[in-house]
């Protein structure tokens, strides 16, 4: 009883959970996701749709792009932003993190401090977006969900992701510190 009280206290809310606790809980929600939606967790696919919608907003046409040529992809785009399940999940992910931060009284808008950070965010973000399209997913869809799905592609992704992280670390230390 005391433990529960402590958990919900101001101090308890500030406390970070352990990595293993995080791993177990994420796994449970991941398994629930497959069981309830018939598909594992993915993050980067909907982000591509965000791009397509924005492009359409500016008068662009993606319908003849190979990636969006399937009936399913067209239907998702035509249904719109708030009808795309993956988009809803991504928005919820942001709000879930916001909620956790607020309950810990740790929310603050953290401003960009240097030009280096701008370059890092622009370059890093772009590389991730492009890379995720080639590899059919990110650390969630291609790695976490891939491996959990007993797909060999998850392990191949992991191997080259690691090489990329090694190269990225070298670049980070050399140019962005």
């Amino acid at each position: 009883m005391n433990k529960i009280k402590e958990f919900f206290s101001k101090k308890g809310m500030k406390k970070a959970w352990g990595y293993v606790a995080g791993a177990v809980l994420l796994s449970v929600v991941q398994v629930i996701t497959l069981a309830s939606t018939g598909s594992p967790w993915g993050v980067s696919g909907p982000l591509m749709n965000w791009g397509a919608w924005t492009f359409r907003l500016f008068g662009g046409n993606v319908n003849n792009w190979h990636r969006f040529s399937s009936v399913g992809a067209q239907a998702t785009l035509d249904a719109g932003f708030f009808s795309d399940p993956g988009t809803i999940r991504n928005l919820a992910l942001i709000f879930g993190a916001l909620l956790a931060t607020l309950l810990a009284s740790q929310f603050k808008i953290k401003k960009i401090k240097s030009k280096k950070q701008i370059i890092a965010a622009v370059l890093g973000g772009f590389m991730m977006g492009y890379g995720a399209r080639l590899a059919a997913g990110c650390n969630i869809g291609a790695l976490f969900s891939g491996i959990a799905s007993l797909s060999l592609s998850g392990w191949v992704f992991a191997l080259f992701l690691f090489f990329g992280a090694v190269a990225g670390s070298k670049i980070l230390v050399k140019y962005f510190m």
């Binding site: 890093g124 590389m127 890379g131 590899a135 992704f157 080259f160 992701l161 990329g164 992280a165 980070l172």
Partner: peptide, 13 residues
């Protein structure tokens, strides 16, 4: 290629 590029990107970003 995708995983490698993604790996660099995520560390930098």
């Amino acid at each position: 290629v995708g995983a490698f590029v993604f790996g660099i990107g995520m560390v930098i970003a």
